[in-house]
Design a protein around this nucleic acid. Structure first.
Length: 880
RNA sequence: GGGCGGUUAGCUCAGCUGGUUAGAGCGCUUGCUUCACACGCAAGAGGUCACUGGUUCGAGUCCAGUAUCGCCCACCA
């Protein structure tokens, strides 16, 4: 920006401005904090996006909120670290790469493990960089020199160390358990990775013949194919209907296997027939029943969801095909009693939506209850605060009912489980370093466990693994525990709770002090954005169209923590318009500065509007300080927005135009001062436009062009500028102008036409006299007479009674006196009713004694003003 | 089966620990090429704060219940 208005583009062009600053910020090293032991650092570890794919609006929201916090704290002079990273995202990434391979008519099996992993790394190099570039477009001021990838050497070492430690403490074990199995992903899943969906299915009632008898026992099942894996029929021990059956032998349909009828408390006599088939290999409850009764476990499934040899004639059929055929066969044999429609929750894989199968298999688990305890304490005793507070209950409830975490995945992409088995003696060895030979028999036939760890295992270590743990690094020492964990509420369990557990376990300290949970982004119709629905908005497209600052503002205002955000084009436009407004206000101010314009703030501020705007500004600053510290970013930004547009632009700048050429008392020092403060207040949310403008403002105030707003101090409130008197007086001026404009519009006075006005006032008279020119110009009145209240009013005029002044507009005979009388009468009525309401309240002993004095005082003042107004209204009416 | 959240202007939403006449953006109506900005200016219409009851001097705000929409958790076959 030069000093000439004509040199500055009329409309703000984000493309032009945004591209240059980010590079400069990086070159200057502003994003990398200097460790200063005297100061408490502010630290955010960024939730690492998946290497797969591109950033979506959820990431943009994360980046915006975290950048707002980071930039604010940085401007507050704190050493500030925002550490970015990327997640290897096991299943998701393996999937997309496999898809790419399929297009090349090959597969991971064909490539083999080693070559496949090479391909995934290539993918990572390509797309990991994409994500960083997108963050840069968003203006994210994160420290790229500390960027981490979950599979980097450091974080990988943290993973192995954690595994070994937990294993040695007995908190990691391998066991044969029922886990959730996705036949399509061909891997185990944790409970969290299963999405339950209410489905209308069937309840099939099937008769099992009893051995050496003509009797039957009828069971009900939602998954008939699991009959093939039954190893018992169970009834409740107290169920009189079945007392005689217990101990007998039932014969499975079709395959004819003999199974016992047993009694177990787990059976609900009220459900179905009260007799339940027991399939220990394919149902969690049945598995436990099986354990209690020493039942055999018959697995009927292959990993891909087809039936295995235990399914007899149905071998090799898919599980659902098997179900169909088996039902037909049961019916043929007359064993199918009935089919009922049945509502129940069916688990689906959260990655591919395939129905999951409960399946018994050998997997690695974390015994989690001992880790959950300290994580519960950290929140209950207030060391960790969750915002919004309501999620505290959700967090605690989950941890209190937590079940062991299945951490092994039958994938190739990920942290391989650091366990080795000896092929000769069967020894199991665990180590942070690769193990080459057996510790017991010295055999070199040792093989590493083929499985990898759940992606969330490494994520759980993120706050400390990124800072160097298990090594005692300076970063870890200085930046840990971190300050804020900001992320979406949808991963509270997946990630946040696990970070608390693992953080405390590994370091003995909480990983962060505050958990800030934001909501989900929704589209215009309130639907969650998803690729399937095709309603995903690409942040880059929005940036191209509206600018980064507009996107950031739209994402951070008009929302509150934990609530979902509906992002509509009109919101984006409103934000863009604000950027343009700021641009033009700046353009006006800068364009009016000549080389010799003095810009130093005078020692004494005399003009009412100057005192007013400075008072308003400092009130704003104090307010923003409180709100930002309270994580109420949306509210803070709303205040800043309203100040800039509604007070600075609409009133101060307009009034200041009268004084532009006033050499004795020019408005420019105040204009520039308020602009400077406004830009700095706004910078955390709108970094680009504020930097662009500020670089032109700063030199005017004696600074260097090379100084950056992002490392300038955030405005601090100056209490000496607060001026209740000025605010009160200015409010009258504004009211007068509004009243006149209102009347002009009401009477459809030509905009160009000047009208006469008289203002009657007592105490406010000097103020109005001092602002006469402003009133005249803004309301287009001339001549303006200013008189005291005992002035004799004209017969035909419109009178507007304000709190402290009376505006009289003759309106050149346009007044319909009848209408005017009606209007006054109505206003009198309103005033009277307000007065009586106030009088009743003030007469109430309870109110005056119990309400705080400032509230009572305010009511008294209000009453007095209203009475005064009423008197004037009556007087005026009587004159008509 | 548990738990949580929403219900405030035509639409989308703010409104923190209860205290002026409940706000914004968009939309709508009217008028403006006012020398920063039509991505703008000025004026205006529009709300029983879902419902019922309670606490309180005072409730959009706190409590209880109801309705309705949505979300999360959950191994009844």
């Amino acid at each position: 920006m030069g000093n000439k208005l004509s040199e500055i583009p009329k409309a703000y062009d984000p493309q032009n401005v945004e591209t240059k600053w980010y590079q400069i910020w990086i070159e200057k090293g502003y994003f990398t904090p200097a460790i200063d032991r005297e100061k408490q650092p502010f630290v955010i570890i960024m939730p690492p996006p998946n290497v797969t794919g591109e950033l979506h609006l959820g990431h943009a929201l994360t980046a915006t909120l975290e950048d707002i916090m980071t930039r604010w704290h940085r401007m507050m002079g704190e050493p500030t670290l925002w550490l970015p990273g990327i997640d290897h995202a096991g299943i998701a990434t393996q999937f997309v790469v496999e898809k790419a391979l399929a297009q090349e008519c090959t597969s991971r099996q064909e490539l083999g493990r080693e070559q496949f992993l090479e391909r995934v790394w290539e993918w990572k190099e390509k797309y990991g960089n994409n994500i960083a570039e997108q963050h840069k477009r968003l203006g994210a001021s994160c420290d790229w020199s500390r960027e981490r990838f979950t599979m980097d050497e450091g974080p990988s070492k943290a993973v192995r160390t954690t595994f070994v430690n937990l294993y040695n403490k007995g908190l990691i074990y391998r066991g044969e358990r029922i886990i959730n199995w996705c036949p399509r992903c061909v891997t185990a899943l944790s409970d969290l990775e299963v999405e339950h969906e209410d489905t209308t299915g069937n309840l099939w009632y099937v008769r099992y013949r009893l051995k050496d008898s003509d009797d039957f026992i009828t069971v009900a099942t939602t998954r008939p194919e699991t009959i093939l894996g039954d190893t018992a029929v169970a009834v409740n021990p107290n169920d009189k209907r079945y007392v005689d059956m217990v101990g007998k032998t039932a014969i499975l349909p079709v395959i004819g296997r003999e199974i016992p009828v047993i009694a177990d408390e787990a059976v609900d006599p009220a459900f179905g027939t009260g007799a339940v088939k027991i399939t220990p290999a394919h149902d969690p409850v049945d598995f436990e029943v099986g354990q209690r009764h020493g039942l055999p476990t018959v697995n009927i499934l292959e990993p891909d969801g087809t039936m295995n040899e235990n399914a007899g004639p149905y071998e090799e059929f898919d599980r659902f095909e098997c179900r169909k055929r088996l039902v037909v066969d049961l019916e043929k044999e007359g064993l199918l009693v009935k089919i009922e429609s049945h509502q129940h929750a069916v688990g689906h894989c959260c990655r591919c939506a395939t129905p999951v199968e409960p399946w018994v298999s050998h997997q690695w688990f974390v015994k989690i209850a001992p880790l959950a305890g300290p994580a519960i304490d950290a929140v209950t005793d207030g060391r960790i605060e969750i915002i919004p507070e309501r999620f505290t209950k959700v967090y605690l409830n989950w941890l209190e009912n937590i079940r062991d975490w299945c951490i092994s995945r039958q994938l190739w992409w990920g942290h391989r489980i650091p366990v080795w088995y000896c092929a000769d003696c069967g020894e199991t060895m665990v180590g942070t370093d690769d193990i080459k030979s057996c510790a017991r028999c010295k055999s070199d036939k040792v093989e590493q466990d083929p499985d990898v760890l759940d992606t969330w295992f490494s994520s759980a270590l993120w706050p400390h693994s990124t800072l160097g743990w298990p090594d005692k690094t300076e970063d870890l020492d200085y930046f840990y525990p971190t300050s804020v964990m900001e992320t979406g509420y949808d991963i509270l369990f997946f990630w946040v709770a696990r970070m608390v557990m693992m953080g405390i376990e590994n370091t003995g300290e909480i990983p962060f002090h505050t958990i800030y949970l934001h909501g989900l982004i929704r589209d215009e119709n309130g639907d969650k954005m998803s690729k399937v629905k095709g309603n995903v908005l690409n942040p880059l497209e929005l940036i191209d169209r509206y600018g980064t600052d507009a996107l950031r503002l739209a994402l951070s205002t008009g929302t509150s923590p934990g609530n979902d955000i509906r992002l509509t084009p009109s919101r984006m436009e409103a934000s863009r318009n604000f950027a343009n407004k700021l641009w033009n206000a700046s353009r006006f101010i800068l364009g009016n500065i000549e080389d010799d314009t003095p810009l130093g703030m005078p020692g004494a501020i005399s003009a009412l509007e100057d005192r007013w705007i400075l008072s308003r500004l400092n009130r704003l600053i104090a307010n923003v300080d409180t709100l930002m510290g309270d994580f109420q970013f949306g509210e803070a930004l709303r205040h800043i927005h309203d100040f800039i547009w509604g007070e600075f632009c609409d009133w101060y700048i307009e009034i200041s135009k009268l004084r532009l050429n006033d050499k004795a008392n020019p408005p420019l020092p105040v204009l520039v001062h308020v602009l400077d403060s406004s830009l700095r207040l706004l910078h955390p949310a709108m970094p680009f436009i504020t930097e662009e403008i500020w670089r032109n403002v700063r030199p005017l105030l004696g600074g260097d062009v090379a100084e950056s707003i992002m490392i300038s101090p955030y405005p601090a409130a100056d209490a000496t500028r607060l001026d209740d008197e000025a605010e009160k007086r200015m409010a009258i001026i504004i009211e007068i102008v509004r009243a006149i404009r209102n009347t002009r519009a009401e009477f459809r006075v030509e905009p160009a036409k000047w009208i006469e006005a008289t203002i009657a006032a007592n105490e406010m008279k000097p103020t109005i006299e001092a602002q006469a020119q402003a009133i005249e110009t803004l309301a287009r009145v001339r001549p303006l007479a200013i008189v005291d209240t005992n002035y004799k009013r004209p017969d035909k005029a419109k009178t507007i009674v304000l709190d402290g002044a009376e505006v009289i507009l003759p309106m050149a005979g346009m007044i319909d006196m009848e209408a005017e009388r009606t209007r006054l009468a109505k206003e009198i009525e309103e005033s009277e009713s307000n007065i009586s309401r106030l009088e009743t309240r003030l007469a109430d002993e309870k109110f005056t004694s119990k309400a705080p004095s400032h509230v009572v005082d305010r009511e008294r003042e209000k009453l007095a003003a209203l009475k005064e107004k009423l008197a004037k209204l009556n007087e005026r009416l009587s004159e008509l």
